[in-house]
Structure formats: C-alpha cells, structure tokens
Amino acid sequence: MSGHEHPSLKYMRKEVLPTAFCPGCFNGIVMNALFQAFEELEILDLKKYVFVSGIGCSSWIPSPYIKADSLHTLHGRAIPVATGVKLANPDLEVIVIGGDGDLASIGGNHLLHAARRNMDLVVIMINNLVYGMTRGQAAPTTPKGMITPTTPYGNPEEPMDVARLLASTNANYVAKWCISQYMFLKNSFKKVLGEIKRGFRFIEVYAPCTTFVIRRENKTPGQKLKELMNTCIGLEKLEKMPREERTKYIPTGVFKENDKPGFIDNYRQYVSISKR
C-alpha cells in the first residue's frame, strides 16, 4: 500500500476498522458525506463535537467509529442525552445519529419535543426502513405491504413520514435526502454545521437496509443505489407530476429552513428575567 488514504479516515478511529457494518451498508456513505462536509468547512478536529446515538446499526456510526467524544446511549434516548449535554455546555456542537426505529419509534416522543423546543441539536436519522440490527422487523417507516419477520403477510400499517411530520414543528431545518443524492446530502450537512448553527436541525437519509431490504428484493447494493437515483426526486419536481404518478417516487429536498433562535438562546433570555 502506498500512503494514500480515504479522506474520511482522518475523522475515524482507525484501530477499530473495518466497520462492523454489512458489506454495502449505506451507513458508510453517510459517514463519507458528513466527513466531507467537515473537511470542506475546514473543521479537521472534532474535539468540540459530541456525537450521541442510541441503539441500532446507525447508532454504531459514532460509537466507536468517529474520533470524537461519543455517547452510545439507550434505545431511543439519544435525543434526551444530547439535550442534557447541550444544555450543560452550549459551547459543544451536539450531533445525534440514529435510525428510524430508534429516533422515530421508541424515541418518537423525544424527537417531537426536541423539535418543539427547537433544541440546538443536529439530528441525522438514517432511515433504513426496518430494524436492521435485530434482523429486519417492521419499523414505523416500513412501507405498507413489505414482508418482514413481524409482517409475514405484508406490513398492514402505513409508514410514518418523519421529515414531513417534523416540518410541521418548531424545528429550524428539516431535510430529507436519499443516499444516492450524495452531493445534496453533503451540502445539507454543511448547511447545518456551518451556516444554520442553532435550533433543531433534522436530516433524514433514506438508505434502505442492505441485508434486510435490498437483499430481500434480490438486488445488490450497487443496483439499488442506481435505482434510487431515479426514484428519489425533488419536492418541486414531484409536485408537478400527476397525483397518481407521485406514489412511485420518494420525495426529497429541504422541507423547512429557518434560522430562529434555538432553545439555548431562549433559555438565556429566560434566565436573564430571573436575574432582574
């Protein structure tokens, strides 16, 4: 090997590589986009960044792979822990990385309330459509009809559109990208890390589970990636389509963008009242 190294590796704990993710798992691509955003923002050391995750495959991204302070917490509880960290030391930028089951199901209440508070957190939700770590059971994001171990006759429930739901809250930034939209995703990370630096910033990444979604469709991760390049389309483009066409596509884009004071600012204001 010559000395060339993947640019992401400088943000990673190399001693624990290769990662424990399945071959072709899209989690690694999310990491690349995130690290490229850091690099382009010229943030080379993540000392002042704290990563908080819950339980699930995507929760393993920061713990142990990112070289930064990380808290690998209980299932669903990443957001409250992150809230505690941020409140206790607002100088730290706190980033939550989790899956759809972790953040939207067992942690759904925390997600809503953090968004309601416009809590100063970056939340990255990797939506792999299932509970990947426990063998692909149905999640709140699983499409209707999908066969999983807990829905052997096809999922009878409608999935939850987490990004749209959060767009209706007090959150500052809500975006949803597909893993195939790498550049958009990276730019979105740049936006919430470098530009909108306060409030609740939520990015959903649509990245179907390699093992329990893609393989069940008899596809390879590469094939799925290419397919997603066609099925994930921007919100505006989707709206121009006839209604019956729309269901075939996955809407992506920025659902909401704001730069209102976050909870930390509001809390400081509140405390100043107490001191008067």
Binding site: H4, E5, H6, P7, S8, L9, M12, L17, P18, T19, F21, P23, G24, C25, F26, N27, G28, I29, M31, N32, A33, Q36, Y182, P221, L225
Partner: peptide, 13 residues
C-alpha cells in the same frame, strides 16, 4: 467510487 464506498477502502488519486 470514493464517496460511495461505504468502507472508506477506495481512493482516487
């Protein structure tokens, strides 16, 4: 290939 490599295993030089 570099950005889409989930395992940070490939570098374009």
């Amino acid at each position: 290939c570099m950005w889409f490599c989930p395992d940070q295993a490939i570098v374009v030089i």
